[in-house]
Amino acid sequence: MEHYGEQTASGFLHVSAESKEPYADDIRDSLHRDAQAIIARYPVKRSALLPMLHLVQSVDGYIAGRGVSFCAEELDLTEAEVSGVATFYTQYKRHPNGEYTVGVCTNTLCAIMGGDRIWEAVSEHLDLEHDETSRDGKITLERVECNAACDFAPVVMVNWEFYDNQTPESTIALVDDLRSGVAVKPSRGPDRQVSFKEMSRVLAGFPDGLADQGVGAGPASIEGLKVAHQHGWTAPGDSASGAPADAAEQAGQVKDERAVVRDAAGESLQGARESTANDKAGE
């Protein structure tokens, strides 16, 4: 509370002596093959740097000194240039990461919907602050920024998979399961939770074959579609084929109840449109 300006203190790029130990030959060979595949995706070599940093995280679990050296060698960059990029982006970890990054969204919308309470509960439960890792190496706890799932607030991310509509209790149960090895499943994601290293390899652009698992859309994503089905609303020129018969009946009732409100809103909308048209901002 006394540090009003401080939300986080993420520390510096950690380059321990062991993090500079060279890769074993077989790992180095496979990293090199992967790097070549990444480089081939781009017209200019340097574009491969961000995916390659994800790639070295998939081996080391963070951006180790040898990972920096490797990227520099493969891309003809200096280590300073690679470090400069690695330290700019929050997904590149500066010290060994846990098997699961648990990120609680504490941006405004989620925070107010309960994210702050979730953060307090899980931080106390794990005795971890932002960007700290549990002693068993299982969990790295983070406060994360808006993850584009506000209609599922409050949101928790595990290795950047969505766990929607969380509560303090559900998140504590989630981290307990992760720590004890009980299988957990994201709300919108594959059938199993992948590890930090597995996730990093996907972000480097190497698919793990899980794309066809999980839902297409979560419940909130199709709220509007449901309303449209209920009322038989479609885009111009479309048939109302999607609307189930019973829903159409319901829609009739809803329409009656709300007709007055809508008509009133429609009139004011019409007025506003006319005034907009008259205004014609000639920019």
Partner: peptide, 12 residues
């Protein structure tokens, strides 16, 4: 105004 599911038409 009514909804116009176009890009979201088959999300279900």
């Amino acid at each position: 105004t009514t909804l116009t599911p176009i890009l979201s038409k088959f999300w279900d």
